[in-house]
Design a protein around this nucleic acid. Sequence first.
RNA 1: GGCGCGUUCGUCUAGUGGUCUAGGACGCUGGCCUCUCACGCCGGUAACACGGGUUCGACCCCCGUACGCGCUACCA
Length: 494
Amino acid sequence: MSNKKPRVRFAPSPTGYLHVGGLRTALYNYLFAKKNGGEFILRIEDTDQNRFVEGAVENLIETINWVGLEYDEGPNKDGKVGPYFQSERLKIYKKYSEQLIEQGDAYRCFCTPERLTALREEQQKAKLPQAKYDKLCLHLSKEEIKKNIAEGKPYIVRLNVKAGDNIIINDIVRDKVEFTRAVIDDQVLIKTDGFPTYHMANVVDDHLMGITHVIRGEEWLSSTPKHILLYNAFGWEVPEFAHLPLLLNADRSKLSKRQGDVAVEDYKAKGYLKEALLNFVALLGWSTSDNDEFFNLEDLVNNFSLERVHKAGAIFNVEKLDWINAEHLRKKDKLEILQMLKAELTESKYKDLELTDEYLLLIVEAMLERVSFVKEYIDNSPYFYEPPTSYDETVIKKRWKDDSVDLLQKYVAKLTELENPIKADYEIALKQVAEEAECGAGRIIHPVRVATSGVGIGPGVYDLLFILGKDEVITRINNALKVIPEIKKNISIN
RNA sequence: GGCGCGUUCGUCUAGUGGUCUAGGACGCUGGCCUCUCACGCCGGUAACACGGGUUCGACCCCCGUACGCGCUACCA
């Protein structure tokens, strides 16, 4: 291993959104760089003109920024080795491909797509072990090549794979992987449109950008021999490789859009915290030797090592993500949650309510242990934002007794006498009523809860009442007193 | 088909020849706490793909089989 300061890169092709698998690749690159005092570079691999998607790059960068994987060099953040868009480096690839042609390590190929498919079919029919280009154009004379070019015949540039030793990759996560050289095809380096293929652009850029460690998905393992051949042809130092296990659907196929959400922005839209997403995705293929599972970005940086990345693919299992999200949300600062709640409220039907921070903070505290998502501060307790629009019948059935009306009236009477009650006052008052009526507190607590919130679950009643405030509580109980007995009667009849 | 990679509870994983009657987490589940729900706490559930070796001894090493996945494009 070289002792240079590591430089790694995340090199996505802009397909329109950031895939969660891509997020993990980016994360591991970032973590490795930061852990080892190195640099993390973002490079856009936009060499496929057919796959151009409007706005994809902007979207990608926005998402990377949102999760907080700040890159040291890349789009809008120039280092010394830009540009960081491959589409802007065409001249560079051309120069290097010409060098390869001159050296005899690459050659122009004028074969038509028709000939190539015919060749493949023929080889398949003949049951040849593997389909490969037959090097026809390698044997073209200088005159023939010149003539073809003069005639404007389209051509591609192919790597000239010569006979030789097997290619050995010393992968950081997979150890030694060996490929028979005879199996390697004369890979296309430059396409007819003048754009490079992934293989060419990747090797040239990684070298020119000083990349020391190539950390990427396992789908690249099979083409790594081609890359090594290229480094060798140029006489460049081969970087270290670490091929990451794939992220899988529940059926163990490669994680795909068909079987659920794969875009980071989908999870963002659903209300997942970036901390949770990062934490979860980090654990998909990496772990520490102890039992820690809760990590923020800084923890991850401190603990990460490529040696502890394992080899098998991992299923992206949302249940655990939900749990991690809840954990992160609960550990957040209350004022931060307050800001998120306010943002969420502006998107909700309660956007026109004028609620004080003080009021919202009380809700945050009361609901903290009861929510997994910020949205749930609204969805799980609408009664903090509006009076109940209905009353849960199963709760009424179970908790509303014959004496409930009487007890609630007495409680209201007690509350009316109070001045600026604090939480404890609601409790004292309730206990007094219970004592006078010679019944358990629960006999009042449950009816009060349904009457004020409409449901049977939620924070402690005294918290609930205190947050709502005396006037609101009395109004709500009085309203409930008008409708709940009717509901109870109907339930009894049915 | 060829080449490559992989295979521990349902899921994410710990485990590098004896400490494993295989540990943790999520999920599910029983209980405690309790005004409800949740949190928390205590407990339960459930796995070394299979077959051969090597060894005094294999989850761990070797070979094979099965299965899964990836690559096999002028896509990345």
